[in-house]
Design a protein around this nucleic acid. Sequence first.
RNA 1: GGGGGCGUGGUGCAGCGGUCAGCACGCCGGCCUGUCAAGCCGGAGGUCGCGGGUUCAAAUCCCGUCGCUCCCGCCA
Length: 587
Amino acid sequence: MLKSINCGELRKEHAGQRVTLAGWVHRRRDHGGLIFFDLRDRSGLVQVVFNADVSEDAHRLASDVRSEYVVQVRGRVSERPAGLVNPNLATGEIEVYADELTILNPARTTPFPINEESEVGEAVRLKYRYLDLRRRRMQRNLMLRHRIISHIRAFLNERDFIEIETPILLKSTPEGARDFVVPSRIHPGKFYALPQSPQQMKQLLMVAGFERYYQIARCFRDEDLRADRQPEFTQLDLEMSFVESEDVRAIIEALMLSLFAAVSDKQVQTTPFPVLTYAEAMERYGIDRPDLRFGMEIVDLTDLVAESGFGVFANVAAGGGRIKAICAAGAGGYSRKQIDQLTEEAKAKGAKGLVWMKVEAEGLRSPIAKYLSEEEKNGIRERCQAQMGDLILIVADQAEVAAASLGHLRLVLGEQLGLMDPNVLACAWIIDFPLLEWNEDENRWEAVHHPFTSARDEDWPLLDSDPGAALAKAYDLVCNGTEIGGGSIRIHDQGHQSKIFAALGISPQQAQAQFGHMLEAFQYGAPPHGGIALGLDRLIAILADEASIRDVIAFPKTASATDLMLNSPSPISPQQLAELHIAVVEE
RNA sequence: GGGGGCGUGGUGCAGCGGUCAGCACGCCGGCCUGUCAAGCCGGAGGUCGCGGGUUCAAAUCCCGUCGCUCCCGCCA
């Protein structure tokens, strides 16, 4: 080893010891005859002192050293004199008097500072990702990521789960996201697909009798990117045999609580995690992944204003729509401009307009106040539990539009009013999702979760009569308004699976071609089973207080799915193309 | 596919028709034995992303384009 101890581990009790350190020069302070280095390795910083009186050679060499040089230092650990202790440094009670310095490797001036937390444009960070990763923020994030994944493995191993790897070269399926495909050299014109998730494989592992499987699985989806979506991302993929929804949720909830306690100072808002039905979430929060760190729930005013003198309310109510509201506590002072912005936000989600009411000493102040009776105004105020100084926002529209637009406004206001406490983890389960949803464009039913999801036992007959009303044995885990996981109890018999395929408009021939292996497997004694997949990047980002999952991934892609360091994707040679039987078509 | 924001020395930013491309940090040189964002003195460094247009005059206005980013669509 080129070092005897890590920089950041040195403490007062090491005083007097002779040590060898190796690391990067974080910062250099040159006082002429006296030179200080902050020497950095993964463990942290320690101050190294070069005194011309101690070693003239080392001191002379030290004056040539610059930031980010890789050096080896030998010297004696010494307690700092009184008054020279640095309380901001873990190693601040000591320093190392160097008598020997070796430059292991010099460094060019870096394109951005490594030794400070200043903002740097993301393009530059990504081009020099290896330097960005040297900075404290990314070191911290990736070490947190490691601790989280280690904890998950230990927790599941302890509970008899078996980690099994599944193929990266898989088969393309029509359902779901766009596949990344890999051409076959051996089979002209044929392609593998990268897994969107190991869904089918993990079910087949249940058929194989492993009973409890997990995998830290890389998944690939060729869709457009977002702050929380990368073309490749990591899931905790998990599957269990002989379980019901509650069993899967229980083990994941226990895992989450144990994980949070182990790696985070954040407070879990509610345990056990609240369980909301999808319908309830949509009704109260206008979204299927509500941020439960704050209230401001959506209330329904339809019954109060159905006969209102305000024509819009009466007409919407008469037309089968709903009049819904949220009450933003303390936002009664919002300016005209601020309310206009809220109106734009509501319109972006489909609302035709936004009615506002300010609760003031003289009563409700609102452009529509004059059209409302005292009874209506009092009713609204009471239903909204509005206090003096609050702002009530009302949308009258089809139920879905009213809910979606108010759900969006709720998040905008939650942000503006500072209601999203970053030190709180508000987790919840969302259950009873619809099994199917109607795809207008393709004029057919689609699986909401995936085509292997079981309907609730009592809902199977609905597939024939009212497919949209059937609810699934599916569950999502939501934390602070982010969906961090989803799963379901699967279908484990051929009959139900065929019924789903039929409902999805997949012919028996198509089903056989695409999913024949699954249907066949179900005939050989498939156990009842279910599982879940957690988006680890999102979970880690929440725990790391990062807004983008790029900041918890070592080498992420840009929003346009490129790698600025590798310059990928890139063309391949005509020889490679020929071998793969691929012709590139110029557009 | 669509909409918004940004692009100016190495980094972060200011300048948004005409003195002037400026500030901070960094970098280079000098001085300096107790700093820890060391200090002091001096210095170098930019075809203002790229292309076109408007104008007597463009970093500044317009069009296009490229890159980064946020959002919508998309993401079983």
